[in-house]
Amino acid sequence: MRLTFDVNGVGQQADDVWPGESLLYVLRERMGLPGTKNACEQGECGSCSVYLDGTLVCACLVAAPQAQGRAVRTVEGLATDSAGGLDHIQQAFVETGAVQCGFCTPGLIMATDDLLANTPTPSDAEIREALAGNLCRCTGYEKILDAVRLAASRRTEVTP
């Protein structure tokens, strides 16, 4: 099939898409956007989290045809508006030491973006719940929670 959809604000088209392909496969192998990671392919680890029409999804669990005519936003499309190249969430992850091997990081950044968009000042319990679907094997999560808290505090500062 021909897949027509929007990725990070740009119209895209892919031909000869097998309907069984995942959105993750389309992004990584067809669109050349490997920032969205493939670590389990069964929706357990959250490394492939992206927005599909503004809803956070595991791209590995979305069949490519489900993206037809819809808008996808990946980690590569997050910081396009910020001058320094990083948005406040990405900057918070860098500063707090929340990034180690980096393979879970894009998924966690997307999940944090989604959390703070809906819950600007989350409690720790809300952070843990929001990130419950994201596995990390390096960090022990503590610095990731620090990153989310820092990003939330800065977001509150700039958007009263």
């Binding site: 990584r28 969205t36 980690v75 910081a79 990083l86 860098v94 180690q100 980096g102 990081t105």
Partner: peptide, 21 residues
């Protein structure tokens, strides 16, 4: 010192390329 990880920016933006990429 607690220097920030040098390649952290590449990792948080998805720009870092791993072997399979």
């Amino acid at each position: 010192a607690g220097l920030n990880r040098i390649e952290a920016a590449a990792k948080v933006t998805g720009a870092a390329r791993y072997a399979g990429e």
